[in-house]
C-alpha cells in the first residue's frame, strides 16, 4: 500500500508503529467513486498523492464547503480514543472522511485560537501531522479536534 507518508515526507519504513497504524485497505470499503473523483481531478488518489497534492486536495475540499465535525471536542483520552478508533477503519483514500471525523479546519479554532502550531502531533519542519490515524499534511494555522498539547 502506498501511503502519504511514503510519497510525501518521512518515508519511514523503519518505524514499525507508523507503518502498523496505517489504515488497512481491507478494514472498510473505500467508496470507489470518491477515489475516482480524486483520480479524475488530480491524476492520483489520496493514497498515491505527494505532499503538495494532498495539501491541494485538503484545501480544495474545505474551500468547497466541506463541513467537518469540530464538535464535540474530546473531553478526555477515552473520547479522544473513540475518534481514533473511527479513523483507524478508514483507508488512505478516504480523505474526505478523515477530514470530517477529525473536524479539520483551515484556521485556528475557539476563543483560545487553538491551532496546529502548538499541537503535540504537528511536525513544524515537515508541515505534517504525526498522529498515526491521520498522517496528513498540516499547516501551523490549521486545526482539528484531535488537538493535543
Amino acid at each position: 500500500m502506498t501511503t502519504p507518508a511514503e510519497t510525501g515526507v518521512a518515508a519511514d519504513a523503519q518505524s514499525g508503529g507508523q507503518t502498523g497504524a496505517q489504515p488497512s485497505a481491507g478494514a472498510s470499503v473505500a467508496p470507489a467513486t470518491e477515489a475516482a473523483d480524486f483520480l479524475e481531478k488530480y491524476g492520483v488518489t489520496p493514497a498515491q498523492a505527494d505532499h503538495d497534492t494532498l495539501v491541494r486536495m485538503i484545501t480544495d475540499l474545505l474551500n468547497d464547503g466541506l463541513k467537518t465535525r469540530t464538535e464535540p471536542f474530546p473531553e478526555d483520552n477515552k473520547e479522544f480514543a473513540d475518534i481514533l478508533e473511527e479513523l483507524r477503519g478508514l483507508s488512505a483514500d478516504q480523505l474526505r472522511e478523515k477530514l470530517v471525523i477529525s473536524g479539520w479546519l483551515l484556521k485556528p479554532y475557539g476563543e483560545d485560537e487553538m491551532r496546529c502550531q502548538e499541537c503535540m502531533y504537528f511536525l513544524f519542519h515537515k508541515r505534517w501531522c504525526d498522529l498515526p490515524e491521520l498522517m496528513l499534511p498540516a499547516e501551523p494555522d490549521w486545526w482539528c479536534r484531535l488537538w493535543r498539547i
Binding site: 523503519q14 518505524s15 514499525g16 508503529g17 507508523q18 502498523g20 497504524a21 503535540m120 502531533y121 511536525l123 504525526d130 498522529l131 498515526p132 493535543r148
Partner: peptide
C-alpha cells in the same frame, strides 16, 4: 521538543505525551 512516541515500536519520541 515535544515530539511524541505515538505508538509502541517507534524509533523516536517521548513516552509521556501519549
Amino acid at each position: 521538543y515535544k515530539v511524541s512516541t505515538t505508538a509502541f515500536g517507534q524509533r523516536k519520541g517521548c513516552l509521556f505525551y501519549d
